[in-house]
Nucleic acid binder design. Structure first.
Lengths: 189, 189
DNA sequence: ATAGCTTTGTGACATTTGTCACAATAATTA
DNA sequence: TAATTATTGTGACAAATGTCACAAAGCTAT
């Protein structure tokens, strides 16, 4: 991927940022192609990057009693990272590629520094946080007071892409039910 | 509550903000004393304020099938509002006082305007969002892959204040279990 | 194509949780 | 204080879900 392609993608994601800042952002980013199974962020470690998925998909999870608990999935044009990593803490979850993927990688510290002097950048981050909070609140609602049937229906309705690109084992964990229960709910319909 | 008291509290919450901005924030705020049961924000409506609890407590909830589903509780020195309200949307949940409370009320629009020109204010909002995201992510973990016993234990460990100040009916709803189940788990210990 | 591995489906049974009904207790108000 | 209301506890039973075991189906690589 050449520089002008990368610029186009970054411009479409980081909207309303002046040209000069975009160039700085590009300087602080790099392009990667990685294979399915690669781990971008691993639980318990400090990391210095967040990513934009150009093509491909990832899952995020943590280990509980020797088992993976999936917390979210992401695909094309989504910005991914872990909240703890963005704050300079050891990550509370891992991020792994579900497919061979093409990614743009950003340096967390450098981007954070930009927000200290660049108001637009700071505002952009604010809107990303707000969006992220809404996403989390919706997920909380889904988990707090719905049965597994309703959760699956919501997933089909609002995130049908996940169903097509993620294994049922991971989806079950994401929905907070056992693999077997998910299998049975699917059979019932 | 006089102006200098209010200034002190606001300064302790909005850290690293210059004096001039603090004065503006104070101008955009007002002090309130309200009784238990008062509703600060009601589901489905647009609101133009967020609040700081000086003394007292609140619960947030939405209605599902004629029942309240509690989403969170807050007490002294916490900033409260709903994400949807902050973004100018109709609120997706209600906020009601659990106790007679003393509050400082802020004008959302005015504060949002401040972030357009004041970098410090924008950064402050960023850190509030980040903190809020971490809070939501922890709650998600608690709900996604724990049984009711573990949820109650986590609540006792990390939010014992809630147990002392909130009815078991509301706590059960917050933990995502029926009132009866919570009652039985408590009896078992 | 075949052997090996991964993913998905399904039966049997135990456990957990929800629901309904009602009793016991605590808090509030006249 | 007595009456009333709100909150909490508990028994009985039904429904949902988890766990374990194993079969079926899909992939992958040689």
């Amino acid at each position: 991927m050449n520089n002008s392609e990368r610029k186009k993608i970054i411009e479409s994601i980081f909207q309303n940022i002046d040209n000069e800042t975009i160039d700085i952002i590009i300087k602080y980013s790099s392009f990667l192609e990685l294979n399915k199974g690669s781990v971008l962020i691993s639980e318990g470690k400090r990391h210095h990057y967040f990513y934009l998925i150009v093509e491909g998909g990832v899952k995020s999870y943590y280990i509980k009693e020797f088992k993976e608990v999936c917390t979210w999935f992401a695909f094309e044009n989504e910005i991914i990272g872990t909240t703890s990593t963005l704050q300079g803490l050891p990550s509370n979850e891992s991020i792994q590629l579900l497919e061979d993927s093409r990614l743009i990688r950003f340096n967390t510290k450098k981007i954070n520094e930009l927000t200290l002097s660049n108001l637009k950048m700071c505002q952009l981050l604010n809107s990303l946080w707000a969006e992220h909070s809404l996403f989390l609140e919706e997920r909380l609602r889904l988990l707090q007071f719905t049965n597994s049937q309703e959760r699956l229906e919501a997933l089909i309705k609002y995130n049908s892409e996940i169903l097509q690109r993620v294994s049922l084992t991971d989806i079950a964990s994401f929905l907070g039910v056992s693999r077997e229960t998910l299998s049975r709910i699917r059979a019932k319909k």
